[in-house]
Computed example of a mutant assay.
Amino acid sequence: MNKSSKIFVAGHNGLVGSAIVRCLKDKGYNNLVLKSHNELDLINQKDVDSFFIKEKPEYVFLAAAKVGGIYANEIYPADFIYENLMIESNVIKAAHDNKIRKLLFLGSTCIYPKFANQPIKENELLSGELEETNEAYAIAKIAGLEMCRFFKRQYGDNFISCMPTNLYGPNDNFDLNTSHVMPALIRKIHEAKVNNKKEVEVWGTGKPLREFLHVDDMADGCVFLMNNYDGEQHVNIGTGEEISIKNLALLIKKIVGYDGDIVFDSKMKDGTPRKVCDVNKLNELGWKYNIKLHNGIDNVYRWYIESTKK
């Protein structure tokens, strides 16, 4: 990409998209096309087609998606599969029809099988059954990355895909009913501190192992791939490091400065037992993460406190 290239970031108001916008601006890219949901409904094929014909972006970061944690995925599976399939199908097809230079599709490591070999290599895709708690979302994301692969194979379109691990950062969703584990824990523990509660309840046993990547690192990795990778296979973006949910909760407790107890409700589902990416492919291309977990959580907690004051 040139600094003046016309770049469309789909989903620029979300956790992922806003980080990509920050990263692009920091690197001097100044010709960004940004549309809110009210301005452009990506589920509407006619609107998406009209947008591409009018704006003619050269590069597309497809970060728009309907996302949520275990609770949201279990309650709204039809919404998750429909909305995500429509968004990616409309944008990828319009990008092809309008002959854009390159598209990067962002998936999620939840696309991998529940009991995939660890650390998870890119070729583990479709090698086993999916985790049932986010199956609808995962199927939609798998369809998106396969669309990119098949459009590249049939038409030669330069469409690539990356699979970020569990992300956290500014602009995350802190709604306790729909958020992922990191923001949910930050909010629960912070509110317990403010309200002098003696304990915080966490769903599950605390035993599952997870990998967390700060969204600003993820964005930097995406821009790196857009400029340095043209392969057919998707690429994992992560740290290659893991932490148990229990230890994550204890780390957040320390950062927040909460003195109460963390208790675990083992009647609630844990989700996938272990999920950590093999990031050798991306490392060999020349990229590695920068923000350590403790520093990243401290950064997000400060952002959360400021956002609640507004």
Rank of each mutant, 00 (worst) to 15 (best):
K281Q: 13
V300I: 09
L62P: 02
M163K: 11
E55R: 14
I75H: 13
K275W: 14
M147A: 13
F150P: 00
L42R: 00
L251I: 01
E232R: 15
V202E: 01
K269C: 14
I87P: 00
V9P: 00
V21N: 00
Y301L: 04
F151S: 06
D49F: 02
K253L: 15
F80M: 12
S266A: 08
F61W: 03
D216S: 04
C277A: 13
A95I: 15
I75K: 11
Y112P: 05
P183L: 05
K188T: 10
I75V: 10
R302H: 13
D270E: 10
Y304V: 14
V202L: 04
L285H: 04
G128H: 07
A219F: 04
E39G: 07
V33F: 06
K309F: 03
V279E: 01
V60A: 02
V223T: 04
L225E: 02
L42N: 00
L40N: 03
G69F: 01
D259C: 05
S266C: 09
N195C: 09
K275T: 11
V48T: 11
K292S: 12
L126Q: 10
E199R: 12
T178I: 12
S4V: 14
A72I: 08
N196K: 14
I262M: 09
E58D: 08
F61K: 01
Q118L: 09
E284W: 10
L85W: 15
V202Q: 01
K197L: 09
I252M: 13
R274F: 10
D270G: 11
M86A: 12
S50Y: 13
P273G: 10
N13M: 10
N98F: 04
E201H: 07
K246V: 08
G128N: 07
L85N: 07
T239V: 06
S4C: 13
G221L: 05
L176C: 06
G286T: 02
E284P: 03
L130E: 00
